[in-house]
Amino acid sequence: MATIQFDSAEERRSASLLGMWLFLATEVLFFGPLFFGYLRGRLAVHEAFVSGSHHIHFWLGTANTALLLTSSLTMALAVERAKLGRGVRLMLSLTAALGTAFLCIKAYEYASELGEAASARGGEAMFYFLYFAMTGVHALHLAIGIGLVAWLWLTARRYGERYSMPVEVTGLYWHFVDIVWVFLYPMFYLLERYNA
């Protein structure tokens, strides 16, 4: 009923993939002001950013990056398996679990940094503002991603050789969220670590 506008399943799939890529283009520009604000702030008050960076947890951030990169692997495998029509649930479960683990560690980090952030002044306050804003918007995206993966898990029976578009589209979104973190990680965790 909802797909009368398409002549074939393939046309529907290619339209959905294009739609998701365009949405991701929108997302790139949604993050744009944050990245530009960071760049300008870091060049304006570099020292404050460095000292702010030394107050956040290097190892937790690094471990989280590894978790998220691994979740991208399991998501890619989920797409592959959805096309085969078997084993998709296992990969979706792993993906959601890794994403949830990331959020739990992130929540622990936030809790332990909040006091320090509240007492920060000047440029360091701006560093913390950007840190919470950027990782917060990222975490929100990840939470939405986990919700989508859970929905795929519930509807996993529908996907097979002929129809796996929702898994593919969600996969694109998941990988995009991963890529955002790949840039956030060095921007916040890795400033002049050799001086820490």
Binding site: G41, A44, V45, G123, M126, F129, L130
Partner: peptide, 12 residues
């Protein structure tokens, strides 16, 4: 009360 547009914090 803090942000990237506030010149007191080095914002613009």
């Amino acid at each position: 009360g803090i942000g990237i547009f506030n010149p007191a914090l080095g914002g613009d």
